[in-house]
Amino acid sequence: MVLIDVISRERIEQLINHLIENDHFQSVFNRYPDVNGEEDENYPAGYFIIDRPFNRPRYFVTKEAIESLTKQLNLMKLSEYSQDWEIEAAESSRVTEFINYYESLNTPLNGGEKFALMKLILSSFDDALSGGEDNKELWFRIKEHLISDLDMFRETIRYWALADEDFEDGFELIPYMRELVVKFSL
């Protein structure tokens, strides 16, 4: 929670609009709804509070995307009760094939397929790194796609970076993703 005082309402609104337009802020300012500045000495008029997340679109791996990619990439069909499809379907030996498919102009992907396939690519690449493979060229290609669709992949990057955790081990992708978290203030 952040409280702001001693500046005009107009200046606060300018600041809010600037932060949102330039994507520097992940929350919006709201006037605290139950405060009357004339009656509450703890919250005099002019105080504002940041109280809810910025309304960015949320992306999920959908059943339709899973079915489509399973068919198109000849992936192992998983149980209907499977969780974390991208982790269960990951194949470290196919990372190059997956990224080539992602980049192919002959196979246009819809948004759901694009999101699901990138999650599969990241999981497969993490498995490859765990197996001792460290392909810098492949990482460069993956990174370029993550950056070009940063809004779509923001939460995915933070997940693989363990951005809210202090420890360094968990995924082999952590240092790669933490670089993006820092560079783009995710």
Rank of each mutant, 00 (worst) to 15 (best):
P57D: 02
Y159N: 12
R158D: 06
Y159I: 14
Y81D: 09
D151V: 14
E39H: 08
R9M: 05
F153P: 03
L3M: 13
F98Q: 00
G131Q: 09
A116T: 04
E67D: 04
P57N: 05
L75Y: 04
E113H: 02
V61I: 13
K63N: 07
F115S: 05
V35G: 09
V95A: 07
L3K: 11
S79Y: 08
F153N: 06
E172W: 02
F29M: 08
N110K: 04
H24N: 15
I16C: 09
E172V: 05
N30F: 10
Y47M: 12
R154P: 02
D5N: 13
S124R: 03
I16M: 09
L78Q: 10
D164I: 00
E39N: 08
E165G: 07
Y159A: 13
K119P: 00
D169M: 08
K119N: 13
Y59L: 07
I7K: 06
Q14H: 10
E10L: 11
P175N: 00
D169S: 07
D164R: 12
E64H: 08
P33C: 01
G111V: 07
R141V: 03
H24R: 15
P175K: 09
L73S: 03
E168Q: 13
K119L: 04
I7T: 01
A163I: 03
N22E: 14
I66D: 05
S82R: 12
K183A: 15
D166T: 06
Y47Q: 08
L138S: 02
F171N: 05
R94G: 04
K136T: 07
S93G: 07
R141Y: 03
D126N: 13
R141Q: 06
V95T: 12
E97K: 05
I12G: 03
E133I: 15
V181S: 09
